[in-house]
Simulated assay, not measured.
Amino acid sequence: MPRPVTEVYVSPAPGIRLWTERRGAPDAPPLLLVMGAGACGLGWPEPLVDALAERHHVIRYDHRDTGRSTAAYDEHPYRLADLARDLLAVLDGLGIGRAHAVGLSLGGMLLQMALADHPERFLSATLMGTCALSERPYVAPDGTVTAPGDLPSITPEVLELWSRPVEDRGLEAELDRRVEHWRVLGGSRLPFDAAYFRDLERDIVAHTGSYAASTAHARADDSGMLRTDALARNEVPTLVIAAPEEPVFPPPHPQHIAQVVGNARMVEIPGMGHALPPAVHGPLVEAVLQHTAGAAAGVTPA
Rank of each mutant, 00 (worst) to 15 (best):
R55T: 15
L42S: 12
E46G: 14
G38Q: 07
L33F: 03
V34D: 04
L48N: 08
V34F: 00
R55Y: 03
A28R: 12
A51G: 02
M35K: 06
G43Y: 09
L52W: 03
M35I: 12
L42Q: 11
L48Y: 11
H57N: 15
C40M: 15
E46K: 07
G41R: 01
A51T: 04
M35H: 05
L31R: 04
E46P: 08
G36R: 03
L33I: 10
G24E: 10
L42W: 08
H56I: 12
H56T: 10
V58D: 02
A25P: 13
V58K: 00
A37F: 04
L52I: 03
V49S: 00
A37D: 02
E54Y: 01
W44R: 06
P30Y: 06
H56F: 12
A37N: 03
P29K: 09
A28T: 13
A37R: 01
A25E: 14
G41H: 01
A37H: 00
P29C: 13
L48P: 10
D27L: 13
L32C: 11
A25S: 15
V49E: 03
G38A: 09
P45I: 10
A25T: 14
L33S: 07
L52E: 01
A39R: 09
V58M: 05
E46V: 14
G36Q: 02
V49L: 04
L48E: 11
P29F: 09
P30I: 08
P29H: 08
P30M: 08
V49P: 01
D27Q: 15
A53D: 03
W44D: 07
P29V: 13
C40R: 11
L31Q: 05
A39G: 11
G38M: 06
L52Y: 01
A37M: 07
V58G: 00
E54W: 01
A28K: 11
L32D: 06
P29R: 12
P26R: 06
V49F: 03
V49M: 01
G43D: 12
A51K: 04
P30Q: 05
L33A: 12
L32F: 01
G41V: 02
L32K: 04
A28S: 14
L32W: 00
A39F: 07
C40L: 13
D50I: 03
P47K: 08
R55A: 15
A39T: 14
P29W: 12
V58I: 07
G43F: 12
V34L: 09
P45N: 06
G38S: 09
P30K: 05
E46R: 11
V34E: 05
C40S: 15
A37K: 00
G43K: 04
E54T: 10
P30G: 07
P26V: 13
G38P: 04
A39Q: 14
M35T: 15
